[in-house]
């Protein structure tokens, strides 16, 4: 008798990431909403120039739940269990990545919805440069940085012995998550107004390419032994 197809575990992984990483999610969403709302009240260029740059930084903080699930599942033998029942390791990676992307989409989506609603309610215009920066930088950087940090985090975690605290990969994760967006922001400010757009687009390209390459190499970098708890 042919065994039934493996069910998708993405929904469960997303829900578990919500539960396990709820503190990070609340902090990221809260900070993002506060900044988004405050900036949407301004009539100057701050809304267009600053808000899209902050969005990826705050959004990635909210994705820590996915990495927490990955680390816990590895150390507690859940991956060992899943592999024994025929779940391939690449499905494990994909589930964690999917959960992280969902979390960042939630933070970004909620923040954008509230900020735009406030702005439109007050009768303030939404500048074209805001939309361009959002589509050309904020959203690709949010998803690219999340994919990059999640892939790097899974790889880094798999190399490490189980431990907790700020010395662990998890302790560093919120800081690692803000790195791509933070560095891009600093580079853009340092480059001056004439080169700002090029720097931001360049940063997005670098992050997205790096994330793509790392994800392609994930199975090679992380053989199934690295997903097992200590014997």
């Amino acid at each position: 008798m042919e065994s039934p197809a493996l069910p998708s575990l993405l929904g469960t992984t997303i829900r578990r990431s919500f539960t396990v990483g709820r503190v990070n999610l609340v902090v990221a969403t809260g900070a993002s909403l506060v900044w988004g709302t405050l900036l949407s009240l301004t009539s100057g260029s701050a809304f267009s120039s600053l808000f899209p740059l902050l969005l990826p930084i705050l959004g990635t903080i909210g994705t820590a739940g996915a990495m927490l699930v990955f680390t816990n599942d590895r150390t507690k033998g859940v991956f060992e269990y899943l592999i024994a029942y025929g779940v391939p390791p690449h499905r494990v990676f994909a589930n964690v990545l999917g959960a992280a992307i969902t979390l960042v989409a939630l933070v970004d989506g909620l923040t954008l919805a509230v900020a735009l609603a406030v702005r439109l309610t007050l009768g303030l215009a939404v500048p074209l440069v805001f939309v361009e920066t959002l589509l050309g930088y904020s959203l690709p950087m949010s998803f690219g940085a999340t994919a990059l940090v999640t892939a790097a985090g899974m790889y880094w975690t798999s190399l490490s012995s189980p431990r907790t605290g700020m010395n662990s990969p998890l302790g560093l994760l919120p800081m690692l998550g803000v790195a791509p967006g933070g560095l891009a922001l600093l580079a853009a400010e340092g480059a001056g107004p004439g080169y700002r757009t090029y720097v931001l687009i360049g940063a997005v390209v670098v992050v997205v390419v790096l994330a793509f390459v790392l994800l392609l190499l994930e199975s090679r970098l992380m053989p199934r032994e690295r997903l097992l708890s200590p014997a």
Partner: peptide, 21 residues
């Protein structure tokens, strides 16, 4: 092969319990 796996139950020395549920 999945057909062979379907004959097996495996209980690890670790709990294998997923957090968040």
């Amino acid at each position: 092969l999945q057909g062979a796996r379907d004959h097996l139950h495996y209980l690890s020395h670790m709990d294998g319990i997923p957090d968040g549920l």
